[in-house]
Every structure is written in C-alpha cells, then in structure tokens.
Nucleic acid binder design. Structure first.
Lengths: 339, 339
DNA sequence: GGGGTCTCCACAAGCGGTTACATCAAATCT
DNA sequence: AGATTTGATGTAACCGCTTGTGGAGACCCC
C-alpha cells in the first residue's frame, strides 16, 4: 500500500533523483533511462504523492475558484469552462463558495483558507462591495477575475456597454420609442456589469435621440421573481413601455411571465430583450445578447495559468465579443413598419 | 514569507510538537499553554502548510466530487449542497468532471488522478455504464454516490419509484386514462433513476387498472429538445394521450413547448407532470415531483464524512422523500369532474 | 517518604518527494 | 595527448509538519 519513489528507484536501478527527473520529463536524463523508469513506474503502479511533491517543491498544483453561487446558471457554466482548462493542464480545482452578504451563507475567512493551499485564484463575479474580495486579492497571488473588474487585477468579461447597446439598438431599430429598462438594484455601488449595461442602454438611447425616462426603470435584482415584479410595475405605469431591456435573461424570464399574466403577447404587444444567453432563453423564445459564458471561464483559466507560468500578470481586461440572437420576444413597434 | 511551526514554537517558548497539538485542539495540552500558542500563532499570522501536514499525517483533508456535467441544473445544485457541508467540515473540495461517453468530453484516467489526492469521493449521477465508474469505486476509498446506486456503495437518492407513482397517481386522480410517458432512452442499460421511474409509472397504472400502452411511450433523452420531440411524437399518435408523465422536468419543459407549438393548452387540453423540481418549473407553471436536490448533496457529503471518520460504510441506500407540487400544467381530464 | 499515576511537554524519527551540488565518464577543443 | 566542456547520474540536505516514545514534575496513597 503505497509504492514510493524509492521503490521505483531500486527496481530501476537508479537514484530517486533520476526517477523524479525522468518521470517529470526534465532534461538531462538519458532517453533509455527515462523509458526504463517509466516502464518500472507503470509496472509498479506507482503514483506520485502530491503532498510530498508539494511540500518539497513549494508548488501546490492547484487553483482555487471562488464564487458567490454554485447552482446558478452563469456561475456553474463559467465553472465548467474553468474546470475543462484546469483538468487539461493537470491542475487541481478547489471549489470555494464565498458567502453572499445578503444571502443565507455568510462565510467569512475564505482568504485565510486559501493561503498556502493554491498557486492561483479565479474569482467569479463576486460583488465588488464584498469585503472578502479585497482580502483575497491582497493575498498577492496570481489572480484573475471573471465577470467583474477590479483595477490592477487581470479580468475577463464581456463588453457590457456594447452588449447593452446592441440590445437597445435592436429595440430602437424595431421602431420602439418608449423603451423601459429592468435594472439590477437601485444601490449606489452597482455591480460592474450592472453599471456598464445601464450605461450602454443610456448611450444607445441618447444616440438615437430618445429619452431615458426614469419612470420606465424598475429593478429586478437579477432574479426571475424580481424581473416579474419589475415588469409588472412597468406595465402599471400610466403609459407603459412598448419594449423593455432587461439587464439579465433571468429577469427577462420574469418579465415574460408578467406579460403573460397580463394577457400581453411578447414580441407583439411588448418586446423584451435580455442579456446572457441563458440556457432557457432559446426555449422561452427570448431575444437576447449571448455571451460565451463557458469561454469566459476557459479564457480566464488560461490567462491565469499563463500568469502563473510567466509571473507577469496581464492587467489589461480581456473583453469577449457578444452576439445578438433575435427570437420571438421582440418585434416591431405597433404602428411601425421599420425593419 | 512563510512562518513555520518552528517560528511559532520559538516565539511561544515550546516545542513544535506542542504547537501542533495545541493548534489542533488535541488533549494533553495545558489550557494556558494552548492559549499562549494560539495567541502567538495569530500574532505571527501563521497558517499551517497543508502539504506538510498532509505528508506527515497521511490525510489529505480533501474530498473529490466526480460528475459528468457541471453546468446542468441537477449537478450544480447537488454540488452546492456538497460544497456547503465540506466547507463546514473544513475539507477541500476537488472538482473533477468525468467525460461522458456520448459527449464531447471523453476524459479517461480520472481514477488515477484521484489516487493519493483525496480521502473520499462523491460521485454524482454517473451513468452505470461508464467504465470509469468501476475504476473509481475500485480505488477502494470511502465513496458515496448521489442519484445513482451501485451495489455495495453507500448512496443517496430519492425514491424514484415512489416519485413516479406520485406523479402518475396525480394524473390518474385527475381522471386521466390515456396517460403517456416520456422516458429517457430505449437503451437496455437504463440509468437507475430512469429504470425506477418507469417502474413506478407502470405500478401506478397497473394498480389503477389502466394499461401501459407502448404506443404512448416516447424517449426524450433527458434534454429539453428531446422532450419536445417526444411530445410531438406522442401528439401525432392516432389517439394521443390526455396526460403525460415526463421522467424529468427538462423533458417536461420540452413537452410544454411542443404543446404550445400545437396550440394546445397545458393543464387544459393535455396535462404534463415532471420529476425534479427544477428551478424553472415554477416559472413554467409545471406540476412536478420535487426532489430536494441540495439536500441530496448535503446528506451524501455528511454520510461520506461519517464514513471517513468511522471507517464503516453504511451500505444501505438513503432514500430522501419527494413532494408533489401541483401547478397549472395538470388539470382534470376533459369530461371528468373527479378531484 | 518511597513508589505509583497522571499531566504536560520535548525529542527526534519519519512522511515522500525535490533540487543544489558533487561526481564521473565521454565528448570536444587546442 | 592533455585540458576542458558537456551530459547523465548520484548524494544528501531540506520542505514543514505529525506522532511515538520517554522523562520531569505534581499529586496521591499506604
């Protein structure tokens, strides 16, 4: 139970040092020796002890993924991209769910838990207001963020401003004029993506000579229920919008439900467009700006690995392109025949 | 950079052995000594080196989670329950996605990667036909499965037979007689849950004196698209069913879509019931048998921890209760006023 | 008051690798 | 041919913690 490197060395008639070098593909090992060692190791069913290797080398060969949620679509999808790359690179993936302040989970002290345990950290969309975020970044190890930008830290996100403009412009092109928006929360410290998407919306509206009517803004807190409530609020306005841009697909789902509850047809009576490219958006026939979420994770993981290898973090944020996918939830403004 | 236990020992004026015992709460340490050591450790911002501790103790303090998918609802939801418990127990969670044979990911050799790396393994719903499953189980370390039963291995699942009976009985109670079923796949080696749910359906039907009509069975391969296709097939039967039991919510979602495409109203023209309690089921107004998925993960993780502690695996499968949640997708059979 | 117990603690031998340095033979240079 | 470089391997000192063993002192009992 537990073949050691020593056993392999003896069986191969070399020193443990040579076994170590041979098995790890280091240079300065004769090819015949290497093959012999590999053969012996395989025969003996030898598996290196990670703990020993880590202790001796000082490298842990693992990366921590820190996320506020695991079960939500965006997060688990990013995670799957990350996992793919890390597995490919033969790195261990340590999954850590950080608490979310306004959530049931209020986990503190995630940072210390990471201290001597990993070589790099990937942070998925932790709200900038979370105090733990700083602690983790201040650990000073290779770090990269996804769906969130922190100055001085490499990040991978979509261009949220452009995405919002894309969605909004689509509605404008369809001839809509009274365009509403379902935002995240009225907080003063908005999420990066939230802030940018609002900005993109405003830019597109202004560029088209349309007004951003504060009465046509409601908040959905990035949940389905929230989106439903927000849409309901918008519909009960004296003059409701003919089209609505929801900052996330999940809120858009809620909005669709609200429409149905009011007997309104999506894409006919009221148009709804979201952002995300959520799995279900296709099945709910939602027009949305698709972001390549798996790729987000994949790219960030690769950037992190590069950073761990080269030591030089590439601070410039990586922006991934998005794509508008038009489905049935948007249609021409009534009385308009444009597009 | 890197306070060691020696530094703490010196600063506290004790041996490293005492520091080790004091910090880990072992007995045979004077309370005053312990407190002093703790204080010194805190002052020095000492963090134990996991690698060293693991090497010396032979315990890794980590658990691997093996899953065929990360981004799918069921799997990520289980995962979040698991993570919760493991974090609580101060265990590292190593996430490993196993390839899925008929999938793009065809990862082999997951088992060897786990060898000296973890103290226990949690397997989420890997198909029994997957050859890697055996390899992993044959590693011979504490293992527990979720949503899948392997003889001799502790498992946590819902009672799939009962769940299917519950769903089917609900349709029967509503007065339906021509009840169809959307199965997973016509394969000869069905997934455990798949097999049991089919069985539960048959049991309920037979008990009610109804026939299981093979013409009213279609296969949806546990995907939305598959469910849609299956439902479409059922609807194009000469005499289509008035109610359909889908083996999963995702297939039921597809079925709902098919209904809509055919201009049929769920719960009025045709009733649909699913199993899972998928996040979206509420928003799609789907009647379903809810399984407490997060709890599945939580319970399995706790069982695994117990097994790692006591060494005695509790082979008896743990069955978690399910609950029928009635929503708008089911309604009385036309011409029936029962229930 | 000498001979047990019982606590609390120090000593030191690992755990299983990695790697700087030493070694030595073969190859290359002058 | 002798000096020097080069490549392959061995030697051994760690890496930082855990834990079995043993000893010193406190406490108890007859």
């Amino acid at each position: 139970m537990g073949i050691t490197i020593r056993d392999v060395a003896e069986a191969a008639g070399v020193s443990t040092a040579t076994v170590s070098r041979a098995l790890r593909g280091l240079p300065n090992v004769d090819e015949r020796t290497r093959r012999r060692v590999q053969q012996v190791a395989a025969d003996l069913d030898y598996v290196i002890s990670p703990s020993a290797s880590r202790l001796a080398s000082g490298r842990t060969g693992s990366v921590a993924v820190v996320t506020p949620y695991i079960a939500r679509w965006f997060f688990s999808t990013v995670l799957s991209g990350v996992e793919d790359v890390l597995q490919e690179a033969d790195m261990d993936l340590l999954l850590t769910c950080i608490g979310d302040h306004n959530n049931q989970l209020n986990r503190s002290g995630v940072a210390p838990r990471l201290r001597r345990r990993v070589d790099g950290i990937l942070i998925i969309a932790v709200p900038p207001s979370d105090p733990q975020l700083r602690e983790i970044i201040d650990l000073g190890m290779p770090t990269s963020t996804i769906g969130l930008t922190v100055v001085g830290v490499p990040s991978v996100t979509i261009d949220d401003i452009a995405a919002a403009r894309l969605a909004t412009q689509h509605l404008i092109n369809l001839g809509h004029q009274r365009i509403g928006i379902i935002g995240g929360s009225p907080s003063e410290a908005p999420f990066t993506a939230e802030f940018d998407r609002e900005a993109g919306f405003a830019q597109a509206m202004t560029a088209a000579g349309l007004q951003v009517d504060p009465l046509l803004e409601a908040f959905g807190y990035f949940t389905i229920e929230g989106g439903e409530a927000a849409m309901t609020a918008l519909l009960t306005q004296p003059t409701p919008p003919t089209a609505v841009f929801a900052l996330s697909d999940e809120m858009a789902f809620g909005a669709l439900r609200a429409l149905r509850a009011h007997g309104l047809r999506p894409g006919v009576d009221v148009s709804i467009v979201g952002v995300d490219g959520h799995d279900m958006s296709e099945h709910l026939d939602l027009t949305t700006v698709v972001q390549p979420v798996t790729d987000l994770g994949r790219i960030a993981a690769e950037a992190l690995l590069a950073q761990m290898r080269d030591g030089a973090p590439d601070i410039d944020p990586i922006r991934v392109a998005t794509q508008l996918v038009v489905r049935g939830s948007t249609g021409p403004a009534s009385g308009s025949t444009r597009e």
